[in-house]
Nucleic acid binder design. Structure first.
Lengths: 207, 207
DNA sequence: AAGATAATTTTTGTATACATTTTTTATTTC
DNA sequence: GAAATAAAAAATGTATACAAAAATTATCTT
């Protein structure tokens, strides 16, 4: 088996597991075909990562989505990712730009799922951040982006294809190619902030 | 018992558990007087939080301290904590300032341990950030500050009492009292950056 | 004697069984 | 009938036992 906790995480992302009600260890052990021990191992790890939260005195649950959390996740993204890009900027090679471009092309496909789109989106940004060589920050940002993915299904679903975001991506690559650092940083900041505002606005509307 | 994972975390902080070598589950279960199951639960949760890292194919270890990680932790602190203070600023009440002041007085005591000083330091900052009402960001920042605590024992130990830091704290409270927002934000940013630089410089020197 | 391979030991991973806690249901009391 | 209490059920937490994997040691080969 791959890793059980990753499988559970996937099911949280795909809204297979119910939100707001306690997850029962015996149910999960039947669903995943293992005993309660590896289930517990995974649940406790997911709790530590923020994927699950306590439910009353005992039990863990998938937290309900809330616009306030989404807003904060995007605030952290804009702060930390601009920092990463600023450190990475001078070390981004032509090869990185090419790889990032390939991701954008893949993102144009229609048949990919919303979750896959979220993953590709992070992969694109990650390529630009890796040359910064800031492992701790990168890990934190990666974690935040995984959390963001929980909201993406909602964002892309009712909102349809986000062409502005894709346009920003291409423009960002062009600015990097032209070594226009401050313009690139500004664009990235604005790009993340606008995506956050759009998502927050939508989540508020369905609240 | 309190919580086992907190006890283990404490022992990591106090350098009771060895760094860089795999922790043996049977050893730990003897040390803490429980079976291997609750030990495993705790270890996996601590791994998810970054307190432990994999050692080879199997086993977990306490990661070695490294100046590069400390540097990155402080970079994140300066970005996110300035953000928190900016949101909190207009909602900080006189009572908050008074409470923060009390922490500073407690910090003057000589008989408290280095770990306790680290905790009090975070408590001081936390009082100023709570009015921001940004739970997700707060949790992330809290986590980062806990990680920082691992390095504090080294910092305060060989460096002695950091009076500049304490002076900054008092000055920050004064600026908040006078509602000088941008000056307060600048001071906080500088305060965190200088603390980070001092720590990083020291860690490099013993490397 | 150095490297590769096989046997042994150790350690981790998982299942089952039991204890404790929490939650739910039933009963009592006003 | 509603609130409080007691009994029952269900769920979690932990210990022990065993299986699988990893690390170590011993053995063999050249």
């Amino acid at each position: 088996m791959i890793v059980l906790s990753e499988k559970i995480k996937d099911d949280i992302l795909n809204n297979v597991l119910p939100k707001g009600v306690p997850l029962r260890q015996v149910e999960l052990s039947k669903r995943y075909g293992v005993s309660r021990i590896p289930i517990r191992d995974s649940l406790l790890a997911l709790k530590a990562e923020g994927w699950l939260v306590p439910h009353g005195k005992a039990g863990l649950m998938v937290p309900n989505l809330h616009w306030k959390e989404a807003e904060e996740l995007y605030l952290m993204r804009s702060q930390l990712e601009v920092l990463l890009l600023s450190f990475a900027f001078d070390f981004i090679r032509q090869k990185d730009v090419t790889n990032a471009h390939k991701i954008l092309v893949a993102l144009e496909q229609d048949e990919i799922t919303l979750i896959e789109k979220g993953n590709l989106n992070w992969l694109f940004h990650e390529i630009l951040y890796l040359p910064a060589d800031k492992q701790s920050i990168h890990k934190t940002v990666s974690c935040i982006n995984q959390q963001v993915t929980r909201y993406i299904g909602f964002q892309y679903g009712p909102m349809g294809y986000k062409s502005q975001s894709q346009q920003d991506h291409y423009e960002l690559l062009e600015l990097i190619r032209l070594k226009k650092k401050s313009a690139a940083l500004s664009l990235l900041k604005q790009h993340i902030e606008e995506a956050g505002e759009e998502l927050t606005r939508f989540l508020k509307s369905i609240d």
